[in-house]
Simulated assay, not measured.
Amino acid sequence: MAPLPEFIYKITPTAPPDPIPEQYPLSALDQQDGFVHLSTSWQLPITAGLFFRDTASVYIIKLRLAGLPPSSVKWDEVEGTNGCPHLYGNFGAQDVVAVREFRRGEGQTWEEALAGETAWLV
Rank of each mutant, 00 (worst) to 15 (best):
A2L: 01
T47S: 08
I11P: 04
A119T: 14
E106L: 12
L44K: 05
L38K: 04
E111H: 14
A113V: 11
I11R: 02
D95G: 07
A48E: 02
E111G: 15
W42Q: 13
A119F: 14
L68P: 00
L87Q: 05
Q94M: 13
E22Y: 03
V73R: 05
E6F: 03
T40D: 03
V97K: 12
D30R: 01
L65Q: 02
G49H: 04
T40I: 00
G116W: 05
E101V: 07
F52S: 05
K10Y: 09
I46H: 01
Q94H: 09
V122T: 15
K10Q: 01
I60C: 09
F52Q: 03
S39K: 02
A28Y: 01
Y24N: 02
T47K: 14
A115M: 12
K10E: 01
V122H: 09
F91M: 08
V78T: 11
W120S: 03
L38E: 05
G67V: 08
V36C: 07
H86L: 13
Q43R: 09
Y24L: 04
F91E: 06
A98T: 08
Q31I: 12
T118K: 15
K10M: 10
Q32T: 12
P5Q: 08
P13H: 09
V99G: 11
H86I: 13
Q23I: 14
W110V: 04
P17N: 05
P25W: 07
W120R: 05
H86P: 05
P85M: 06
L121A: 09
I20K: 00
N82L: 12
I8H: 03
V96E: 06
Q108R: 02
I8T: 03
V99W: 12
T47Q: 14
P70K: 05
L4Y: 04
L44D: 02
F51R: 15
A15Y: 04
R53M: 08
S27L: 10
G49C: 00
S71N: 03
D95I: 12
A98P: 00
V97W: 09
T118M: 15
H86F: 14
A15W: 04
K10I: 04
A56K: 10
L65P: 06
R100D: 05
I61R: 11
Q32I: 06
K10H: 13
I8L: 08
G105S: 10
G49Y: 01
N90K: 11
L29V: 10
Q43V: 01
L87C: 06
P45Y: 00
F91A: 09
A119L: 14
K74A: 11
L50P: 00
N82M: 12
L4C: 07
L26V: 09
A48Q: 04
P13A: 15
P21M: 13
E6A: 13
Y59F: 09
P16E: 11
P45F: 03
V97P: 08
A119H: 12
E111S: 15
G116V: 10
T55C: 09
P5W: 11
D30K: 02
Q32R: 10
V97H: 11
R64E: 09
S39M: 06
Y9Q: 01
T109Y: 13
W75R: 10
P3Q: 15
I11W: 01
Q94I: 07
P13E: 07
P16Q: 08
